[in-house]
Design a binder for these strands. Structure first.
Lengths: 343, 343
DNA sequence: CTGTTAGCGCCTTCAG
DNA sequence: CTGAAGGCGCTAACAG
C-alpha cells in the first residue's frame, strides 16, 4: 500500500531544507528566531513532502494534545447532533480534534466517569446538555483540564444555554393570550437527568404563567414522562380520558408535542380546532408538522461552547454564563379555544 | 487544581511495585512472560495510583493510536446520529476512541480530504453514508490505515448497508398491492452525494416495480429534490398542481415524506383517503406521524461497521459486504385509492 | 520470567 | 538567528 506519511519526519524535511532539526521545528511552529527566508524554505519543503507532525511525538515533547472530549447523551437525537455540529465546526476551525463519548445509558455514564477514558488524551472536555453530579464533577477534575457545559446551566463550569423558564413562559403566554384557560402540561424528563434544571424551569414557566393569569393549577392536567415522542403520546391519552380535557397542551419539547398530536388525531379530534398544541425547541420534524413552538438556536449554542473552549485553552477571558435567546414561532397547531358547548 | 494523572507514570508504578519498567509495561499490556504474582501486584499498584498510560508515549514507542476517525456528513440528522451511536458503542467497548469529523458542506469535505486532519492520528477511518470519489480515495489511502464504509455501498472498501433497490420495491409493491397505479416518486439527493448509488437504487426500485406491474412511467410524476423535508414539501406542491395528480406518493426518505404530508394537508386533502404516502427509513418522527415506511436498522449498521473495523485492526477475517435487511412497516398513511369520480 | 538498553519524533533549553 | 543535546513516557528487542 502506497503510503507517504509513515515515512516523512521532521528530520527528513530538515535535511532536505538544509537546516537543523530544531530550526525546522521552529519554522513549522512559527516560533521566534527564524529568518523569513529559512522559514519559507522549510515550509516549502514540508508542503512538498506533505509533512504532518506526529501529534504523539509533539505532545510527548511538551505540547498539548490538540484534542477535546465531548460527552453527549443520546447522540442520535436532533438536539444533541445539532449542538455537536456547532461545536465541531469551531473546534475544527481551530484545528482541534473532537473525541466523542456517547453516554446513552446509566451504565455508560458510570463507565465514563469512573474509567475516565479521556484521561490524558485531551486538553478540555465539554459536557453536552446533561447535569454532572457532585461526584462526577470530582472525577472530571481529576483530569486536570478545562471543562465547559453547553445546553444546560451548570453551577460549577462555564456554560451556555437558553433560559428555560422564559421559553416556557413564551409558550404558555401564547396559549393564554389565545384565550385558553384549561391548559395541560406534558413535562419531559430524561432518566439520565432526573431533576435537571431544564425540565424544572420549563415547568416553572407553566406555573408562573398560570399564576399570573389568575388560574389555579390543576395537577390532573400535568403529566411527567420520560423524554420522547412515544411517551408524549401516552401521556396525551391520559389527558384525553379526563372528564374535562384541556383545550390546549404545552409540551416540554417538540418531540413530546408530536407524540401528543398523534394521539389527538387518532382520537378523531382536530388540531387546533379542538385542541391546541405547543412545544419547545423548533425541531425540524415539528416544522414539518406545522407545530407551533419556541425556537432556540441549538447549533449556535454548540458553537459558543466551542468558542468558550478555545478561549479557555488560550487562557483568554470569556463569559462563563451565556444565555441564548428564544423566540415564539407560531405555526398552525395553536388557535383560540372553541366554546365548550360547540365541541 | 487537584490533579493526579499528570504525575503518575510507569516508572512510578514500577518503583512502587518493585519491578523494572519493562516488567511493569508487560504486566499492564498483559504480554507474555510475567508471572501471575508480579502481574497482580503491578496491576494493584496501578489501580491504587489510578494510573493510565500516556497514549502519546505508548504510540510513539510503537503501539497503535487506539483511535478511529469517523467521517460523517450532517451529523445532526437522525440517520447519521443513529449510525454513529451504533458505531461508538462497539468502538468504546473495544477501548477505541472516536475522532469525529463532520463534513456538512462541500468546503468542509474538500478540506477534510485535502488536509487529511486525521493523518497520523488514527488506526482506521470509517466513512459514514457518503460516497468518496476516486480522488478522495487516493487521498484517504495516503493515510495508510484501514478504511470501512457504512450506510452505502462502496466499490473500494468493505461496507455495510441496506439494499436500496429492495427497500424501494417494498415501498412500491405495497402501493401497487393497494391498487394504486398513478404513483409519484419524490427522489432525494444530497448535494454532497449527487448520483450516490443510494438514491439511484431507490429510484430503480420505483421503475422496476412499475414495469413489473405493467405501468408506463410518467416522468411528470417524478421529482428530484435536495434531501430534506422542506424540499419534499415543495415537490409535493408541484405534484398537486398536475391536472391529474397521483393517488400515492413514494418518497425516498421519511423526512421527504413528512414534508409531502404537510403540503397535502395544507391543501385540504386527507391522508390516506385522498392520497397515500410512504417513505423509507423508519425515522422516529415518521412514527409520530403514523407514517407508513420501510424500516432499516440504522444503529445496527453502525455497530456492524464498528465490528468490521475491529476485525480489520486485528487482521481477522470479515465479510467485506454486509447487507442488512429492510422491512415494510404499515401505519396509517397508506390505503387503497378512492375511485376517481369520488374525489 | 525479569532487567537493561535503545530509540519512537519532536520541542526546548542551552550554547554558539 | 541557528545548531547540539537532553529528555517527554513508553515499548521492544536484547541479554541475563
Amino acid at each position: 500500500m502506497y503510503n507517504v506519511s509513515e515515512k516523512v519526519n521532521l528530520v527528513d524535511i530538515a535535511g532536505r531544507a538544509g537546516v537543523s532539526l530544531s530550526t525546522a521545528s521552529r519554522a513549522l511552529n512559527n516560533a521566534y528566531g527564524v529568518s523569513a527566508a529559512t522559514r519559507t524554505r522549510v515550509l516549502a519543503v514540508a508542503e512538498e513532502l506533505s509533512y504532518v507532525v506526529s501529534p504523539e511525538a509533539s505532545r510527548l515533547a511538551g505540547g498539548s494534545t490538540g484534542r477535546v472530549a465531548v460527552v453527549v447523551p443520546h447522540i442520535s437525537r436532533w438536539f444533541f447532533g445539532e449542538m455537536l455540529a456547532g461545536l465541531e465546526e469551531v473546534l475544527r476551525s481551530a484545528d482541534l480534534d473532537l473525541l466523542l463519548y456517547n453516554i446513552d445509558t446509566l451504565d455508560h455514564r458510570r463507565h465514563f466517569f469512573e474509567r475516565l477514558p479521556a484521561r490524558r488524551k485531551v486538553d478540555a472536555v465539554v459536557v453536552l446538555a446533561f447535569p454532572v453530579d457532585e461526584q462526577e464533577r470530582k472525577r472530571l477534575e481529576l483530569m486536570g483540564v478545562a471543562i465547559v457545559a453547553a445546553g444546560g446551566q451548570s453551577a460549577s463550569y462555564p456554560f451556555v444555554c437558553i433560559d428555560d423558564h422564559i421559553a416556557g413562559r413564551q409558550a404558555m403566554d401564547h396559549l393564554l393570550f389565545l384565550g385558553h384557560r384549561r391548559i395541560a402540561m406534558i413535562a419531559a424528563e430524561t432518566p439520565l437527568a432526573p431533576g435537571w434544571p431544564k425540565t424544572n424551569q420549563r415547568s416553572a414557566g407553566y406555573y408562573s404563567a398560570l399564576e399570573e393569569a389568575g388560574i389555579a393549577p390543576d395537577e390532573s392536567l400535568v403529566r411527567t414522562v420520560d423524554w420522547g415522542g412515544e411517551e408524549g403520546a401516552k401521556a396525551m391519552g391520559g389527558l384525553l380520558s379526563l372528564k374535562d380535557p384541556p383545550t390546549a397542551v404545552y409540551a416540554h419539547s417538540d418531540e413530546v408535542a408530536l407524540g401528543a398530536i398523534r394521539t389527538i388525531r387518532r382520537a378523531g379530534l382536530r388540531i387546533p380546532e379542538d385542541i391546541s398544541v405547543i412545544g419547545i425547541d423548533d425541531h425540524p420534524a415539528g416544522a414539518l408538522a406545522d407545530l407551533t413552538t419556541v425556537h432556540q438556536s441549538v447549533r449556535e449554542q454548540g458553537a459558543i461552547a466551542g468558542r468558550t473552549v478555545l478561549a479557555a485553552l488560550k487562557h483568554e477571558e470569556f463569559d462563563p454564563a451565556i444565555i441564548v435567546p428564544t423566540e415564539l414561532i407560531i405555526r398552525s397547531t395553536t388557535a383560540p379555544p372553541r366554546r365548550r358547548g360547540v365541541l
